[in-house]
Amino acid sequence: MGGPATRRRSSALRAYGCAAAGLFLLVGCTADGSAKGGAAATTDAAARTPAASPGASTPGAGPADSTANPLVPPLDESKQPKTVAEARALLGRIVITEAAFGPEVVRSTPFESDPRRWPVLDEDCVWQTAGLPDDVLATSTRSFHIPAGNGRGRLRLNATVTVHHDRRESAWETARAMEEVLRCPGQKLREGEELKNLWGGSFYLGEQANGWTEDAFSETGEYVSAQDGGPHRYTWSQAQFGPVTVAIAAKGAAGFTQEDMNGLAAQATSRMLLQAKQELGKEAR
């Protein structure tokens, strides 16, 4: 039995999860199957967050200092990391382990991405890796899966946390993600692994079903792999609080429904976002 603080944390997490699931249902109803996210052409643990694009359209201003929404506290800008070391320490307090998904999920090999590398979608819609751009202080992607068995294939999951200098830079990341979907509805992750028929949607806090994050981005499509077969469902869910973005990518498999994948993604995204808010939000007075 936990104390009052533990119970408050659990209640908040359930609320975030319900809101995130609502957004998935909203986006999923207009898409066929699954969504995109989290793999680069040369690494198993790739995030789907690109380097800066000079042609990207300017993102909307978004919430100036959050709102009165109890699920989105005001950002305490004094807590934003200023150095790479501070950003990596913050990232370590936000990124999740397999326990955040549930008992079926285990770690994949390799488990963590190279912290010095960053995925970039090139002009031919092929994912490559490059050094970190100037607007990224720290990023990490961890890879997990549900092993095949009981009539189901192997479901792959990636969890990504990226720390920028400020909210404007993290907003640009979401804007570029939307631009990528429009530019490349079909993408090559690596040799023998592709995403097809991608569709994405982005909602600021207060728009549609988004009552839990400053800016929500979700993507659905199909995942095809020489190893895993397909087409299978694909889902990418990304959320933002201040300078931090968190994201979950789910590559489907036989025996898993869209609801299964949405539930896993919503639960893990919610936990990372809650931890970001606890680290960077202003304390209630």
Score class of each variant (00 low, 15 high):
residue 76 D to H: 11
residue 13 L to C: 12
residue 13 L to F: 14
residue 263 G to W: 12
residue 137 L to R: 09
residue 194 E to T: 13
residue 271 R to K: 06
residue 190 R to K: 13
residue 197 N to E: 13
residue 196 K to P: 07
residue 189 L to K: 04
residue 195 L to N: 10
residue 159 A to K: 10
residue 126 V to E: 14
residue 15 A to H: 06
residue 24 F to D: 10
residue 114 D to F: 11
residue 89 A to S: 13
residue 125 C to V: 00
residue 10 S to L: 10
residue 172 W to H: 14
residue 47 A to Y: 00
residue 144 F to W: 09
residue 221 G to A: 00
residue 104 E to V: 07
residue 85 A to L: 14
residue 246 V to K: 00
residue 16 Y to Q: 01
residue 232 H to Y: 06
residue 224 V to F: 06
residue 204 Y to T: 01
residue 212 W to P: 00
residue 90 L to R: 15
residue 162 T to V: 12
residue 279 E to M: 05
residue 205 L to I: 00
residue 213 T to S: 11
residue 135 D to T: 09
residue 223 Y to V: 00
residue 266 A to C: 04
residue 86 E to A: 12
residue 273 L to Q: 10
residue 116 R to D: 11
residue 143 S to W: 14
residue 218 S to E: 13
residue 258 Q to N: 05
residue 139 T to A: 07
residue 170 S to H: 04
residue 78 S to Q: 13
residue 126 V to K: 13
residue 43 T to W: 06
residue 133 P to A: 04
residue 39 A to K: 06
residue 276 A to Y: 00
residue 281 G to C: 09
residue 224 V to A: 15
residue 142 R to G: 09
residue 129 T to Q: 12
residue 257 T to A: 05
residue 23 L to N: 15
residue 66 S to Y: 01
residue 67 T to C: 01
residue 96 I to T: 11
residue 201 G to P: 01
residue 58 T to L: 08
residue 199 W to V: 13
residue 216 A to P: 00
residue 244 V to A: 01
residue 264 L to F: 13
residue 207 E to K: 03
residue 92 G to Q: 07
residue 180 E to V: 12
residue 36 K to E: 10
residue 39 A to C: 05
residue 273 L to I: 04
residue 120 V to T: 09
residue 27 V to G: 11
residue 13 L to Y: 10
residue 254 A to N: 08
residue 118 W to L: 11
residue 181 V to S: 08
residue 107 R to W: 08
residue 205 L to F: 01
residue 92 G to S: 11
residue 105 V to P: 15
residue 260 D to S: 09
residue 216 A to D: 03
residue 213 T to E: 01
residue 26 L to W: 05
residue 144 F to Q: 12
residue 143 S to M: 13
residue 79 K to Q: 06
residue 206 G to P: 02
residue 128 Q to N: 05
residue 106 V to A: 07
residue 210 N to R: 00
residue 228 D to K: 13
residue 209 A to E: 06
residue 26 L to A: 08
residue 255 G to A: 03
residue 150 N to I: 07
residue 82 K to M: 04
residue 31 A to D: 08
residue 119 P to N: 07
residue 29 C to V: 11
residue 268 A to P: 14
residue 115 P to H: 02
residue 148 A to N: 04
residue 221 G to P: 00
residue 121 L to V: 00
residue 129 T to H: 06
residue 157 L to P: 05
residue 273 L to S: 05
residue 109 T to E: 15
residue 94 I to H: 05
residue 272 M to K: 13
residue 244 V to F: 01
residue 161 V to P: 02
residue 37 G to Q: 03
residue 265 A to M: 09
residue 254 A to W: 01
residue 279 E to Q: 07
residue 263 G to A: 10
residue 15 A to S: 08
residue 254 A to R: 08
residue 206 G to F: 01
residue 229 G to F: 12
residue 147 P to D: 09
residue 262 N to Q: 06
residue 89 A to E: 14
residue 279 E to R: 10
